[in-house]
């Protein structure tokens, strides 16, 4: 199926030319002032792994990293990412397809069901473990305050992140 070209979506009223590095690749495009980073990623760059699940900046499905920091791509304008290093879910696995430790833990521990919140969860987890390589269960849950999952009841997400950090699970969770 043919995909829309970015230039079609943004063909009118473009005001800003932005350049950034996305998953290590230099990209640029014309955007409006109001173009959100997530729109630029999804529609401009066809990186559709970053999802939009709400319009009040709460669900976290659009979580990406900007200059190494966790950001909701729906709550930042593309123009503000000019010059930034952006990392999305598409860049997490190795080039040969090998899953990262976090991704693999999500599969091993059934930390996803419908998959829609999953990219945001993985990006949030990566951000947590970078800052806090051995989080407690409570710290994991607290870190996910801005990421909503409707399928898993969080049990296996928390378990996966703990496992990815190399920690044994409490007996209660190990059923």
């Amino acid at each position: 199926m043919l995909r829309l070209m970015a230039s079609m979506r943004f063909r009118e009223d473009f005001h800003v030319r932005v350049s950034m590095t996305v998953n290590g690749r230099n990209v640029s495009g014309e955007v409006e002032g109001r173009t959100l980073l997530v729109e630029f990623l999804r529609e401009g760059l066809h990186l559709t792994g970053t999802h939009v699940g709400c319009d009040t900046s709460q669900c976290g499905a659009c979580t990406v990293h900007v200059d190494g920091m966790q950001v909701k791509a729906c709550s930042m304008f593309a123009a503000e990412a000019d010059g930034a290093q952006v990392a999305t879910i598409e860049g997490v696995a190795a080039n040969d397809g090998t899953l990262s430790a976090i991704q693999q833990a999500f599969q091993d521990h059934h930390g996803l069901q419908c998959g829609f919140c999953t990219p945001g969860m993985v990006m949030a987890a990566a951000s947590l473990l970078k800052a806090n390589p051995k989080p407690t269960e409570h710290e994991v849950r607290e870190h996910l305050e801005g990421n909503i999952c409707r399928c898993t009841g969080y049990h296996n997400i928390v378990k996966a992140i703990m496992a990815a950090s190399g920690q044994e699970m409490p007996a209660l969770a190990a059923e």
Binding site: G60, Q70, V71, M76, S127, E145, G146, N147
Partner: peptide
Amino acid sequence: IGDPAVRTR
């Protein structure tokens, strides 16, 4: 305040 992503921005 908010959540980690909110605190980034």
